[in-house]
């Protein structure tokens, strides 16, 4: 099964959600700033890479976990992926596309803009981390729900 954590630019919220899913981030406490620095792709994805899916790892159920930046038309891109798979004759039942942008607050948004768009990493990156730390429990909740759904789908298959 394939799980895509999707956000605007695949640099912050999708990376954190995918990392929690894969056990790279804690589920019993809020991580300190340093722990974000070691996450693959965290605050690194460039604008021209939006749209490219990045593989983050395999989870305990052998599902492939990806991150994907969808820009501002997430609904359209999701529909396009499903339509593409259908026309390729591929099964889209074992696929989850999870929007992580709901968990992003304005601090992370400003931080992301400052770091990724303006290139002011030393100011923007810490802001993205503070914002995510504030909403971290929602990320854990989201991943828990995704795993429940994942198990339901795998049991049905």
């Amino acid at each position: 099964m394939k799980i895509f954590y999707c956000c605007y630019g695949s640099a912050h919220s999708s990376v954190v959600a995918a990392s929690i899913h894969l056990g790279l981030m804690p589920v019993n406490r809020i991580p300190v700033a340093n722990e974000f620095m070691y996450l693959p792709h965290y605050d690194e994805t460039r604008s021209f890479e939006i749209g490219t899916p990045f593989f983050m790892g395999k989870d305990e159920f052998n599902s492939d976990v990806f991150i994907l930046g969808m820009g501002s038309e997430r609904k359209l891109i999701k529909k396009a992926i499903l339509s593409f798979l259908t026309h390729m004759g591929l099964n889209s039942k074992e696929l989850l596309m999870v929007d992580t942008l709901h968990n992003v607050n304005w601090i992370t948004k400003i931080g992301g803009f400052t770091s990724r768009r303006l290139g002011l990493i030393s100011i923007g990156r810490p802001l993205t981390i503070i914002g995510i730390q504030q909403k971290y429990r929602y990320f854990i909740e989201l991943v828990n729900n995704v795993k429940k759904r994942e198990l339901e789908i795998l049991n049905l298959a």
Binding site: K2, E49, I50, G51, T52, P53, F55, D64, F66, L68, G69, M70, G71, E73, L76, I77, A80, I81, S83, F84, L85, H87, M88, L90
Partner: peptide
């Protein structure tokens, strides 16, 4: 096979997404 699609202003993004998805599914 020739297709059409309306993609608003997300054409550049979709170009990369489709190529990525094709690769992920082994094509």
């Amino acid at each position: 096979e020739v297709y059409v699609m309306g993609s608003k202003s997300s054409g550049e993004i979709l170009q990369k997404t489709f190529k990525g998805i094709a690769q992920i599914y082994g094509f």
